[in-house]
Structures are given as structure tokens and as C-alpha cells.
């Protein structure tokens, strides 16, 4: 569905400054895949999507999208894709329903089919009460839902979504994904697999939604696999061992170093009573660690296994945290994430 080879994009800014926004992206996406592209602000996600959607001419490299070259046959690419950009696609002075109908008409539907499709989407994305409102009067989240609805009108075989859920409340985010996934399932059932490429800053979203996660940083793909594989290969579980007193920490750390499956051991600051162990399989490491501690006469006050998040993956890859670099309006995701990903095991 998508095949890029060494795609790059340079922007000239100012007189003699060049931004290398994308530096050689080679990517293959099969029909029916759901791929999340993850990366910090300025990583090159939008620029890549804009090249794949024929909005930007690549500086070098090639890209085939839906079977057509983006440079030589852009019009064929456009007929096959849907695109929800990072900006707002709906015209400020237009009415909500008109914009949906317009999009259907542009994709070749007749007036009636376009009207029916518009009403369907208004219903599905909770926008029916706003159908006759001017776009400029919508709230941020309503407007974003309209943008996504516009991208879904023609039920394209390939859909690009650039931060579709930014600014949506949790209910509407869930609702949005439910609808997108239902559409994709319906298409698959009808023998027309639907490919989706999305970018997001909500790490939990990439984690739960996507079957494949592509991490982009500084215009390059730095990791590309399933979320689970990325997490266990690149990050691993974190086992937190709490000692009864700071004095036992060095002995506990030494013991953890020798344990099976341990990748690294760290003690955050002096004076803490917690030893952090990075382990290939945390659940399995715990019993061994507890036994070893017992045998050495060390007393554990508590043990906690933290499953890695995609943020840990990014941290392991780049030494930076996405949370710090990608400051996002939607702070809530960090709290959901840490609470769902954390499993507590108290040891008596």
C-alpha cells in the first residue's frame, strides 16, 4: 500500500539555513495494516505524511502510495486516499453538513449519496446537533471530529490521520476510534482491506490501537515493530525493589545484577531505598529476586513490576523522554498510562 525508498525533505528557511525535516525514510506498509507513527515535535511526521499525500514534493527518494508514484501520478494517489491533516480541514465560514456533502461530491458521489453519507457520519461522530452550525462556532473538539469525519467520507482504502484525536475528551476519543475501527472492520469484511497510518502523541493510543508502531525522530525511522515487541526488545520491564533501609540498597543492587534476565540496575539518588532493575521479563524475575534477597538476609519492603510504555521505548532508543519533548495539550494520557501499566505486588 505504501512503499517509500530513501524519502527526504529539506526546507530552506532564511537565507542560508536548511532544515532537514525528513532524512531518508524507507517504509513498507501492506494493505490492511494499522500503523502508528510516533515521535517528538518536529520529528518529521507531518512532513512525511504531506509527501505521501502529494502535498509536498520530496527532495529526494521515491514513494508509491496505493500503487502510484506520488510525484508522477499524484491525481491517482489522491483518488485513493483520505487525509486528515494536523490543521483543520473544515472551512471556517461553511456549515458543518455542507462540508461533509462537499467532500462526498468531490469524490464522485451524487447529491443524494453524499447527503446520506454526511448524515451517517454526523450521527456516528456525535455532530448531528451541529449539522447546521457554522464551523467557526464549533468547539475545538467538535471541529476536530468534523475534520476526521470529512476524511472518512469516501471510506478510502488508505487513510492518513495526522493527530486525529488531539484535543478530544476521553469519551470522544474512544468514540472516534470505535467508529474508525468499525469502518475498518466493515471494509475488511467486504473484502476491501483498509490501511490506516496515524500519528499521535497519545502513547497509550498508539499502544492499544496500532498493530505496528513506527518511531520517527530527527526525520528518520529509529524503530519499527509491534508495540509489544518494541517494549520487550528495547525497554523491558522495570522491577522496583524497595529495601527496608537505604543501607541495604548497595547489597540489593549487587544481587539484582546477578539475577537472571537483568539488563541493567540503577539506583536513582543517594539516600533512596529503591533499586530499579530493568529486566527482560519482570514477572519471572520477581520470585527469583525475592528468594535471593531472603537467602542473603535482606528484607524487602515491597516489590513493584512496571510494564514498559512506548515512552520507555523512546527513552531507551534516544535517551530522551517523549513526555518531556512532546508537550501536548492532552496531559491526561500520562495518568491513564502509568496507572494501567503498573501492577503492584506486595511481598509479605
Amino acid at each position: 500500500m505504501i512503499r517509500t525508498r530513501g524519502l527526504t525533505k529539506d526546507f530552506a528557511v532564511g537565507r542560508n539555513e536548511t532544515v532537514h525535516a525528513v532524512r531518508g525514510i524507507t517504509l513498507d506498509v501492506e494493505p490492511g495494516e494499522l500503523v502508528a507513527v510516533l515521535g517528538p515535535n518536529g520529528g518529521g511526521k507531518t512532513t512525511t505524511l504531506r509527501m505521501l499525500t502529494t502535498l509536498l514534493a520530496p527532495t529526494s527518494g521515491t514513494a508509491q502510495v496505493a500503487g502510484h508514484d506520488v510525484v508522477t501520478h499524484p491525481e491517482r494517489v489522491r483518488a485513493a486516499i483520505g487525509y486528515v491533516g494536523q490543521g483543520s480541514g473544515a472551512g471556517t465560514y461553511q456549515q458543518v453538513r455542507d462540508e461533509l456533502v462537499m467532500q462526498g461530491r468531490v469524490h464522485g458521489m451524487d447529491r443524494r449519496a453524499a447527503g446520506r453519507r454526511a448524515d451517517e457520519l454526523l450521527e456516528a461522530l456525535d455532530l448531528a446537533p451541529q449539522a447546521r452550525r457554522k464551523v467557526e462556532s464549533l468547539s475545538g473538539g467538535q471541529r476536530r471530529r468534523l475534520d476526521v469525519a470529512i476524511g472518512l467520507v469516501q471510506a478510502p482504502p488508505l487513510l492518513f490521520l495526522d493527530e486525529p484525536s488531539t484535543g478530544l475528551d476521553p469519551h470522544n476519543r474512544a468514540n472516534l476510534w470505535e467508529h474508525v475501527l468499525r469502518m475498518r472492520a466493515d471494509a475488511a469484511a467486504a473484502g476491501r482491506p483498509m490501511t490506516i497510518v496515524l500519528t499521535t502523541h497519545y502513547l497509550d493510543e498508539a499502544d492499544t490501537m496500532a498493530e505496528r508502531v513506527v518511531v520517527v525522530d530527527h526525520g528518520q525511522v529509529i524503530a519499527d515493530d509491534t508495540a509489544d515487541a518494541l517494549k520487550s526488545d528495547l525497554a523491558g520491564d522495570r522491577v522496583l525493589l524497595r529495601a527496608v533501609s537505604p543501607g541495604q540498597v548497595p547489597a540489593l543492587a549487587a544481587l539484582a545484577e546477578r539475577a537472571h534476565g537483568t539488563r541493567s540496575v540503577s539506583v536513582d539518588d543517594a539516600g533512596t531505598d529503591v533499586v530499579t532493575v530493568r529486566s527482560a521479563d519482570g514477572a519471572r524475575a520477581v520470585p527469583e529476586l525475592v528468594r535471593a534477597a531472603d537467602a542473603a538476609g535482606l528484607v524487602l519492603a515491597g516489590v513493584q513490576v512496571v510494564r514498559p510504555t512506548l515512552d520507555d521505548v523512546f527513552l531507551a532508543l534516544t535517551g530522551r523522554s517523549l513526555r518531556e519533548t512532546a508537550i501536548d495539550a492532552g496531559a491526561p494520557e500520562s495518568s491513564t498510562e502509568s496507572s494501567t501499566e503498573t501492577t503492584e505486588k506486595e511481598v509479605a
Binding site: 502529494t54 491525481e75 473544515a90 468531490v106 470529512i150
Partner: peptide, 17 residues
């Protein structure tokens, strides 16, 4: 210009129009 800035022109450009 308003449409270019907001993104609605971009949305049209990605259609076969």
C-alpha cells in the same frame, strides 16, 4: 489565505478535484 492557513485548502488539495 484563510483557507491555506487553517488547513481546509490542504484538505481540498488531497482530493482528486
Amino acid at each position: 489565505q484563510i483557507e491555506i492557513t487553517s488547513g481546509s485548502h490542504e484538505r481540498m488539495l488531497v482530493t482528486p478535484m
